[in-house]
Write a protein that binds this DNA or RNA. Structure first.
Lengths: 203, 203
DNA sequence: TAGATTGTTAATCGATTAACAATC
DNA sequence: TAGATTGTTAATCGATTAACAATC
């Protein structure tokens, strides 16, 4: 799993290099830029196929494209946002879903007062339209920006509608109930506590 | 570092158990609930001191409090938010800083149009007040909710004002320039790409 | 060809799991 | 005391780093 966690980072740095019109890079160079060992770079990249050339290094453009393919960023997975609160809005407004392999196609909120309001380039829909919407549109992923206590019923519904991939901002443990779900958890409060720990335990 | 990453999770589960008035728990039980091995639980907990009792298990309340101390959640670190966009607002409005070891004491934005608007229970201040504010208030941590390109100047300023701890939502690499800074990065786009990878590589 | 740099194997390091003696 | 469960050591596993032969 750890190589995989590093792939987006490789992709980011290679994209930058590409934008700066850098054409080739050696593992040593890339390692320097990314603050890792050259060994790790070669090991990591080789584990997906021999993208380099001995005596030359790696073609930035080609390597970037290969990683893009491995990540599946061209698949255009269709995602819906559940919960149009501050976090949901932040994601809808500021994340470049298209660049990250997704298309955000709808947003739902259970709060009737929010329904109809704009979010990103969409309009907030009521939860009651979820089922119909998912029948009419392929929906690959649900982004859960709702409090833990609100997750279970809507998750059950999403699962029954065939959704198996979740970007989960709540502390609800999705895989406990649905072990075949693909889940990426974002636990901001855990991260903030980790920062607290680091400060509390300097040297 | 990995034990540390797990501590907030232990803390969360123990807090829940405590709320449910569970008084004691064995490593086996806790492991079950948390989906890890009992060995790991005992190893992890023991690495900070012998909080258990042979033949009995762990006192939920006591263990929770111990971990709270280790994390330093009682220190009340004072944090300021840099950037009052959607993400900044989401954090200010929806994160229980107090429960996570921090107190959010101010919010700054460079956009004059936002200055004076409310955010959480605060009012957005202009960047121009940063220096004065930090002179008048102990500021332990800066939360960077600004785009990568906007980071460098304000980071330089914050560093020169003595701030050494950063919760960084941008892709700017803080430790490259300031190696003594304590940094916790949140790279949402990397996480979304990881979800994409997982979907693209099922089985 | 000579120099550079990868691909890949082997060595090291660290983290996880298993096992069990200590002890409540 | 007997049963339960920790603390802790040893064994295993996986990930990182080092080294170098292959090769462009």
């Amino acid at each position: 799993m750890s190589v995989i966690r590093r792939l987006p980072r490789y992709y980011r740095f290679l994209s930058e290099l590409d934008e700066q019109h850098v054409e080739r890079i050696s593992s040593t160079n890339l390692a320097q830029i990314m603050n890792v060992t050259a060994s790790q770079v070669r090991q990591d990249l080789n584990c997906f196929g021999g993208f380099g050339q001995q005596g030359y290094g790696y073609s930035v453009r080609q390597l970037k494209e290969e990683i893009k393919k491995i990540l599946g960023l061209n698949n255009g997975y269709q995602a819906i946002l559940i919960g149009a609160g501050n976090f949901g809005s932040a994601l809808a407004n500021h994340l470049s879903f298209e660049k990250l392999g997704f298309e955000l196609i709808a947003c739902f909120d259970r709060d009737e007062n929010k329904v109809g309001l704009p979010i990103g380039d969409m309009t907030i829909r009521p939860d009651s339209e979820l089922e119909e919407f998912c029948r009419d549109h392929r929906t690959d992923t649900a982004i859960l920006c709702i409090p833990k206590d609100a997750v279970e019923p809507v998750l059950d519904q999403l699962y029954s509608l065939g959704i198996r991939s979740f970007w989960n901002f709540s502390h609800y443990d999705i895989t406990r109930k649905y072990s075949d779900a693909v889940v990426e958890n974002v636990h901001l409060s855990d991260m903030l506590m980790t920062l607290c720990y680091k400060m509390n335990n300097l040297n």
